[in-house]
């Protein structure tokens, strides 16, 4: 599903964020990415949906070779990837329904298809009764569920989460985690960067620890510990 081979990333300002990473993540896996702030987690994640390009090395996502793909193909890659952020990134002037439908309108889907799919994902994240609410009328956890619904509405094969529980209290964080696990059970690959020790230690999954731009540890059922 996701393969990296000797990937390096050096920013124009001279910071080298990723220093020779090679990994292989299979379809359907649930993977935590842990590491201190500035360790290179964000760069690692951004390279998968090609927000950033590696300075050197090969990245394969699904059937896409990110090094050789054309600029015009990036939208196609992004349609197979759902992304969830710490700050939700919802449009404040749109209702819950519209925020999710927005992701499908971009693909020029038909009105009835959009309606059906949006109600389906709202059902999955259990927010069907709040479809007409505006983001600011929702709690943080609810907003994050809307952003998860938006990430999965186009049936991506992988969902990337960049600290999805970073702004949430422990209880709400668990709701989100159970939701992600549910989505993972349907066969979607989940990649989650996190600082949440409790979650990583309790919900045991594969853990990739990044330190100083390198993989310091890759455990099939690891705990939260990036100082090796």
């Amino acid at each position: 599903m996701i393969q990296m081979h000797d990937v390096w990333k050096m920013y124009p300002n001279g910071v080298s964020a990723v220093n020779g990473i090679s990994i292989h993540i299979k379809q359907g896996e649930f993977v935590y990415i842990v590491g201190a702030s500035g360790a290179g987690k964000s760069t690692f994640i951004k390279m998968i949906y090609r927000e950033e390009q590696p300075t050197q090395g090969d990245i394969m996502v699904g059937n896409w070779n990110l090094a050789t793909m054309k600029e015009s193909q990036i939208p196609l890659l992004r349609r197979s990837i759902g992304v969830v952020f710490q700050d939700f990134k919802l449009l404040p002037s749109m209702t819950v329904f519209e925020n999710i439908a927005f992701a499908m309108e971009v693909l020029e889907a038909g009105k009835s298809t959009i309606r059906r799919s949006v109600m389906d994902v709202l059902d999955i994240v259990r927010l069907k009764n709040k479809a007409r609410f505006l983001p600011h009328e929702l709690s943080g956890g609810e907003q994050q569920r809307v952003s998860i619904a938006r990430a999965i509405v186009n049936n991506p094969s992988v969902v990337i989460c960049d600290e999805p529980t970073g702004n949430l209290d422990p209880e709400t964080s668990w709701e989100i985690m159970h939701l992600l696990e549910e989505i993972n059970d349907r066969g979607t690959t989940i990649l989650m960067a996190t600082h949440n020790k409790d979650i990583v230690n309790t919900m045991r999954k594969r853990v990739i620890a990044i330190d100083n731009g390198r993989i310091s540890r890759d455990d099939v059922r690891g705990g939260y510990r990036y100082e090796s």
Binding site: Y49, S72, P75, L76, L77, R78, R79, V83, K89, L91, F102, A103, V106, L107, R150, N154
Partner: peptide, 9 residues
């Protein structure tokens, strides 16, 4: 967000 969910330019 449009770019993130795969809108073409």
């Amino acid at each position: 967000i449009m770019k993130l969910v795969g809108a073409t330019n």
